[in-house]
Design a protein around this nucleic acid. Structure first.
Lengths: 254, 254
DNA sequence: ACGGGTGATGAGAATCGTATGATCAGCGGT
DNA sequence: ACCGCTGATCATACGATTCTCATCACCCGT
């Protein structure tokens, strides 16, 4: 498997995406907390690729400590942890007046638990196993919503040529015509669009769009690219390009 | 529940809803008072998502104190509290010439008590357990009524395509035909309409439209969406849209 | 031009998510 | 206390989605 390719596609972006940053222009700070180091490592790498500053913690108590001195703009917080669980961490944070938005990680079947009321505060959660694309998109969303950061554009619409993707409404249209995408197709397209004019390898795409526990072959990527082509490029000037032996790329014609 | 996600919908909205604010343009100030911290926390988070400034207090005496220096535009006030109950707080406020509108919180069975006559003063109350949608809608209502705030639009009518919802009269009509909705259906529709073109997850909807003590599964949301569809979309161009694997959204055709 | 390898795509199976009818419970009004 | 309406739950059917497999087309180096 090609599991350990750490590509840094996003690191040195030069495009003018609706990027988030702190009011003073410095990079966003994220604190990732989980007792499985595999996961905090995975998250840390991915979030740093976004150009963000990352700290990790492996327990609830450590999280509180780090949160105090690091002053993150958002937390990624596992719910189930040995000493102090995620909900308790949230409560203690709020008790001390800290309004930092939190993205919870939770097991798929443990969802019903006590997640109720969470999203009302602007917080959110994703279930394990997650895809990095999902985590990062939701992180962006809660950060944008809580207004702790300034963004270049309040709308969160990505554009490549005459193709637009609205991250809030999930609407995608090309040349004025609306296009229906499935959840996976949407995530794949968003990833490509956020990296316009950058070739992404199948490995990169797999690591980013599919869950970290995905066991299948990387040929699913080819399949989904083909789905996207049918829906987006059909009959029109192609935006999706295959770079043989390297990967895929989206770019506006010309 | 499901894995969804997201949102604090209203936080950084860019749409032109009939938003409330102070005459000088600064955000509304709300003081939430309850001796259960769970509740003040929940309220504080949700109200801040509305873009309002929130302070909390856990007793009647503290409320009076904070009210004096914070000068809120409205109070959310629990009736039953240890030291000084809500009614007494109201009396003292009024005695000192403070006309700030108050939304009382009261236990369902304690309603008969002395609440009668309350609403005559422009105040209002909701019974516990409440839904955030209910609290926020009524807060908006009493603030609007007392004219302590200016709104972009005095009418409080939401529109999505040919569908209109009047928050004051609770009238809903599509294309001129009146539509009868139950209370829950109305709240769900209002929440969706206030977030036109934004996909809302079932988790979000549950957190916002159903009471905070609701223990059931998020499949009720699907059921109520189906009710709304029968009443609103029946035979017509659909306004309600399912975004598979993500949530629901309302939007005008085109 | 050939052949190996890579990518594209159709078909189909397994799974997952959603819609909805039927049923049950609870509350309020009479 | 009864009846009727609203709200919640359950079971089930349907359809969409995802992924594997197989085949076919294509590109490129030799």
């Amino acid at each position: 498997m090609d599991s350990l390719r750490t590509d840094a596609h996003n690191g040195a972006m030069s495009t003018d995406l609706p990027e988030l940053h702190r009011p003073d222009g410095s990079p966003l700070r994220i604190l990732a907390v989980d007792d499985e180091q595999m996961l905090t490592d995975l998250l840390a790498m991915a979030l740093r690729m976004e150009g963000w500053e990352v700290r990790t913690a492996s327990s609830g108590l450590e999280a509180l400590q780090v949160a105090r001195e690091f002053e993150p703009d958002a937390l990624v917080l596992d719910i189930m942890m040995p000493d102090l669980d995620g909900m308790s961490v949230l409560r203690r944070l709020r008790e001390s007046g800290n309004l930092v938005p939190v993205l919870f990680l939770t097991a798929k079947d443990a969802v019903g638990d006590r997640i109720a009321g969470l999203t009302a505060g602007g917080d959110d959660y994703v279930t394990k196993p997650f895809s990095l694309e999902e985590v990062i998109a939701r992180l962006r969303a809660i950060i944008r919503r809580t207004g702790s950061a300034t963004s270049d554009d309040g709308q969160s619409i990505l554009r490549v040529g005459d193709l637009t993707l609205n991250e809030d409404s999930h609407e995608v249209e090309r040349d004025g015509t609306e296009i229906e995408l499935t959840a996976t197709e949407f995530e794949l397209l968003r990833y490509l669009m956020r990296n316009e004019r950058r070739v992404l390898s199948k490995a990169q795409i797999l690591d980013r769009v599919w869950s970290y526990d995905f066991g299948g072959k990387s040929s699913v990527v080819e399949l989904y690219i083909s789905y996207l082509r049918k829906k987006i490029d059909a009959g029109r000037t192609p935006l999706l390009h295959t770079v043989r032996g390297v990967g895929y790329m989206i770019k506006a014609p010309q």
